[in-house]
Design a protein around this nucleic acid. Sequence first.
DNA 1: CTGCTGTTATGACAACTGTCATATCGCTTT
DNA 2: AAAGCGATATGACAGTTGTCATAACAGCAG
Lengths: 203, 203
Amino acid sequence: MKKIQVVVAEDQAMVLGALAALLETEPDIAVCARAANGREALTAVGKHKPDVLVTDIEMPEMTGLTLAGEVRERYPQTRVVILTTFARPGYLRRALDAGAKGYLLKDRPSAELADAVRRVNQGLRVVDPDLALEAWDSGPDPLTERERQILWRAGEGKSSGEIAEELHLSEGTVRNYLSEAISKLGASNRVEAARLARAKGWL
Amino acid sequence: MKKIQVVVAEDQAMVLGALAALLETEPDIAVCARAANGREALTAVGKHKPDVLVTDIEMPEMTGLTLAGEVRERYPQTRVVILTTFARPGYLRRALDAGAKGYLLKDRPSAELADAVRRVNQGLRVVDPDLALEAWDSGPDPLTERERQILWRAGEGKSSGEIAEELHLSEGTVRNYLSEAISKLGASNRVEAARLARAKGWL
DNA sequence: CTGCTGTTATGACAACTGTCATATCGCTTT
DNA sequence: AAAGCGATATGACAGTTGTCATAACAGCAG
């Protein structure tokens, strides 16, 4: 029987190597390529046309979410499994919107990875059940694009004035957006708001 | 020849399994136990008396840095290799102070892990050279314990008043400490100061 | 066309933040 | 004992932040 061909993408080289070693211990799975960022992964998928792509989200060049979208568009025969540290509803939603077939957390037992690869290869979907629930009841991203841009910068430590200049807005407007974002998120200041939004994957 | 006995500690189960699989592919290395947090790791080291402990830093229950200190004290025959995402001078310094013999970054090639284990087992030290340099010229942690406590909380989004209450200080005192920390770090407000301190591993 | 949403803006005000000078209180060091 | 140091506190001041009311304008759905 032919092995399931897998490409693995992950920016921490040590973890990439370890994940590949883990998958290689399975008799029915073969790692045909490794990628250290999104762009490399896309190239590798184009070259090897694997059955499954296992990818991290936070990577340089191209995030796993963008990558998932590109792969669906260009190589729809390859199924994408997102493998990430982040149990963030916003990430899950974006992953599914981008056509990912699996969403797996790095704190699940390592045996689940091979399982997920097999199931996704059979056309099934694999989504972490706790996270799916959380995504359901934490609702959709309440932030507008502007609010996101501004809250992001505020979380970096920039002042309202600096943000205003950077985005060509008046300082008052920036304060308005921040006030709005703070109230939407139930925070009591910009820092807490940024922290909450990050935790949800909305930033 | 007897294999090098290794205990691996890492809080992300998937990564833990993958690292173990990676080390198991080496003919001269055996993973005798796995631990999902610092306390488990300490127990495992006591039970197996391994040659080398490979541990992450940021874990629940007990951090890898504290763990390294405990291991040196109780089981000095076990050598500790820190394996972490964070290229933070402060972490490196604390790791070496705690008696760690190796400090390896997760974005190094996976082949280096087995190498590091072998060298440390032979009594050598293994420290990421770039990081060692950076640690050198970024100087020592300039923050006092109080400044650290306060800056940490400020970075969480707490107001001066909340921090004051929590630490039984006056609000003015909290503002004084923050002002001091901001100036030491060359930041322009508390958020940026917290961000810089985090990046250095001082928080 | 009308109402709704998102973007941008202004002004005013209270609250919070960052800075600085100054002071007290224990504890060391000399 | 005197000097110095670190931790804590106070008060004053300017600057930043958060809130609210209000408004103009564009685009889009009904």
